[in-house]
Amino acid sequence: MGHSQAEKAASRERVLRIASRKVRAEGVTRPGIADLMKEAGLTHGGFYKHFDSRDDLIAQATAVALAEGSAKIERATRKNDQDPRAGLIDAYLAKQHRDAPATGCALVPLGAAAGRGDQHFKEAYEKQVRTYLELIASLDGNTADARAEAMVTLGALVGTVLISRAMADKNFSDELLETVADQLKRRASGTLPPAA
């Protein structure tokens, strides 16, 4: 790859990283091309050297945002050697995750957009959901029960972060994160009976 090709690839990657953070923080309708390019240190006119359209950029940035979550989820399960599920729950329902949507799990902010999105967007979102479910279920041996528990866990994690970000009262938001984390860990440890 020549020097100019390497620079072009680096510029494209920089725009994608910035757009990925923006779609998590602001949604898929907000980031404008001019602002993204300016933040990347590039001109608006250079946009089409990297992407076919704004929709192309947003689709690729969304895919990056979704994929970045897999590595974070895997790291979270390694935070607690004794109880990987507790490590995942604690990391996901942390105040830091709630307060940093631009670098957080993309399932939270992109769910509604995926629901209204085209088939490609829905498939990308679903692929990430399935990846998370497989990872969570693997913590309990990938049985049918483990898959069901993974669905409950993932739904609770994503829903809790979504709701906690919408709270005006930070103390109430903190309580929500802590209570759901405690209940999920109790459920996983068997000290709270699973839902019928």
Results as ranks from 00 to 15, higher is better:
57 L>Y: 14
92 Y>T: 13
67 A>K: 09
137 A>H: 15
19 A>I: 06
190 G>L: 13
132 Y>Q: 14
154 L>W: 00
8 K>I: 03
97 H>I: 15
98 R>S: 11
14 R>C: 01
87 G>P: 05
43 T>L: 08
83 D>M: 05
185 K>S: 06
116 R>S: 08
130 R>E: 06
145 D>I: 01
13 E>T: 07
121 F>G: 04
150 A>L: 09
30 R>N: 11
160 T>R: 11
159 G>E: 00
94 A>L: 05
132 Y>P: 07
140 D>S: 15
74 E>M: 13
135 L>Q: 13
57 L>G: 06
133 L>A: 03
58 I>P: 14
172 F>A: 13
18 I>H: 09
137 A>Q: 05
50 H>W: 07
27 G>Y: 00
185 K>I: 12
154 L>Y: 00
67 A>L: 06
92 Y>R: 09
84 P>V: 14
93 L>K: 06
6 A>K: 12
181 A>Y: 04
28 V>Y: 00
57 L>V: 07
188 A>G: 08
72 K>V: 15
100 A>N: 11
32 G>K: 12
52 D>H: 10
111 G>V: 02
142 N>A: 09
15 V>R: 03
196 A>L: 14
8 K>S: 05
146 A>K: 05
128 Q>L: 12
120 H>Q: 15
115 G>F: 10
71 A>I: 09
131 T>G: 13
98 R>I: 04
5 Q>Y: 10
101 P>A: 06
129 V>M: 13
52 D>K: 12
146 A>L: 04
123 E>R: 13
184 L>N: 04
20 S>W: 11
19 A>D: 04
76 A>S: 06
170 K>Y: 05
111 G>Y: 10
191 T>K: 13
110 L>Y: 12
84 P>H: 09
55 D>Q: 14
169 D>W: 12
149 E>T: 11
72 K>D: 12
89 I>H: 04
159 G>Q: 06
161 V>F: 05
173 S>W: 04
76 A>N: 01
171 N>H: 11
18 I>E: 11
65 A>D: 05
10 A>W: 09
136 I>H: 01
44 H>G: 13
22 K>G: 01
164 S>Y: 11
127 K>E: 15
65 A>F: 00
26 E>F: 11
40 A>G: 08
93 L>G: 09
97 H>V: 15
115 G>V: 11
46 G>E: 06
85 R>D: 03
130 R>Q: 10
47 F>R: 15
156 A>C: 09
68 E>W: 05
54 R>S: 11
31 P>I: 04
134 E>S: 02
18 I>C: 04
37 M>E: 05
78 R>V: 00
123 E>W: 15
20 S>F: 05
82 Q>C: 03
125 Y>K: 01
138 S>F: 00
23 V>E: 03
5 Q>K: 14
36 L>D: 12
100 A>M: 06
194 P>H: 01
23 V>S: 05
66 L>N: 04
94 A>D: 10
168 A>Q: 14
158 V>A: 06
95 K>L: 10
